[in-house]
């Protein structure tokens, strides 16, 4: 069955008025992100929507959950993103025997200095790629998620602040696969968005064979930005205007998930926050200084779908969270003027 997820994809609406309100700062951000996107897309072909969502998450200082079967380029996406932005990147392969300290780092005794020295773990990079996060034990998973939430690590009583920007790109195989510990709801909630890579189209895959067959495309990827620029972009995005009407609309959508009959557990207040931040980032990507309901709509599926727990009845008839959200988008009225 082919399902058209109408609102799910982050489409840019091809209309000429998108850039009306561009001012200096926003144009710069847009410029930077355009370069990053172009660079990433050279490596990850035919996945514009996924790349765009990844950029949004980066810009909104969130974390990204990439979910799909093995071998479709999940890690490639994360690496390409990191390299294009010119920030440090560390990759951790999650396995059942991975310990929390393998992530955060450990204090080891330095005989020369006669004291403990902290050896930072892989989380002390700007972009941390957690491959197959659901293969690790829950204990290790929660250690990572704590870092994601707090943006700091405490080891042996000492608190270490993580780098900024800090972004975890966790990949996850679908839960049904063997030897996995699916992420609990509370932890999924910490990811700002979830994307699925999906198989590339025939033409993209052909192109990939042609270009990547010989050597690793990542090696050709030159950084087009730097952490300082990225931090400024993040600050710009956080300042984008979200009118009360848009905020109300966003809340309407989130609260509607809590009362929808097919949903057992709706979206959390954290989800509202994530949705708003991501919407601001989308607006910036579009070169606007204000958020539109369209921005919110384009993010509802990636930002909310992985947080919903459907009721057993709805699951029984194979309804998906995406279906429910699309349904909501058609029901919840967009705020309009109350004047005649």
């Amino acid at each position: 069955m082919v399902k058209t997820v109408t609102y799910g994809s982050t489409v840019s609406i091809p209309l000429p008025w998108g850039v009306r309100d561009a001012d200096g700062g926003i144009a710069d951000v847009r410029d930077v992100l355009g370069r990053i996107r172009d660079a990433v897309e050279k490596v990850v072909e035919g996945k514009d929507d996924v790349v765009r969502t990844a950029l949004v998450v980066l810009l909104a200082e969130g974390h990204l959950l990439v979910e799909d079967v093995p071998g479709v380029g999940k890690t490639m996406l994360a690496k390409a993103l990191a390299r294009a932005t010119g920030v440090t990147v560390r990759r951790v392969q999650f396995t059942p025997d991975l310990l929390p300290s393998d992530l955060t780092g450990v204090s080891i005794y330095d005989a020369e200095r006669r004291g403990f020295e902290f050896k930072p773990g892989p989380v002390f990079a700007h972009v941390v790629v957690g491959d197959e996060i659901n293969r690790a034990s829950p204990k290790t998973q929660s250690a990572l998620l704590e870092c994601m939430g707090e943006r700091q690590v405490t080891v042996d009583g000492t608190t270490h602040t993580l780098a900024r920007p800090f972004m975890v790109v966790a990949t996850q195989n679908p839960a049904e696969m063997e030897g996995t510990y699916p992420l609990p709801e509370a932890q999924r909630d910490r990811f700002m968005a979830r994307v699925s890579m999906g198989y590339p189209s025939m033409t993209s895959e052909l192109a990939m064979l042609a270009s990547h067959g010989a050597r690793d495309p990542l090696t050709d990827l030159e950084p087009v930005s730097d952490p300082g620029e990225l931090r400024r972009a993040i600050a710009t995005a956080a300042a984008v205007h979200a009118s009360p009407a848009v905020q109300q609309y966003l809340l309407d959508l989130v609260t509607a998930t809590r009362t929808h009959p097919a949903v057992a557990l709706g979206a959390s207040p954290r989800a509202s926050l994530h949705l708003l931040r991501a919407s601001r980032a989308v607006a910036v990507l579009d070169g606007r200084d204000h958020v539109l309901p369209d921005d919110v709509q384009s993010l509802v599926v990636p930002v909310l779908a992985h947080r919903l727990v459907l009721s057993p009845e709805a699951s029984a008839v194979r309804r998906t969270a995406e279906d429910v959200l699309v349904d909501l988008l058609q029901r919840v009225p967009v705020p309009s003027s109350s004047r005649v």
Partner: peptide, 11 residues
């Protein structure tokens, strides 16, 4: 569209 968006959602 631009006008109404500005009115409703713009700064």
């Amino acid at each position: 569209v631009g006008a109404v968006e500005g009115a409703r959602y713009g700064a």
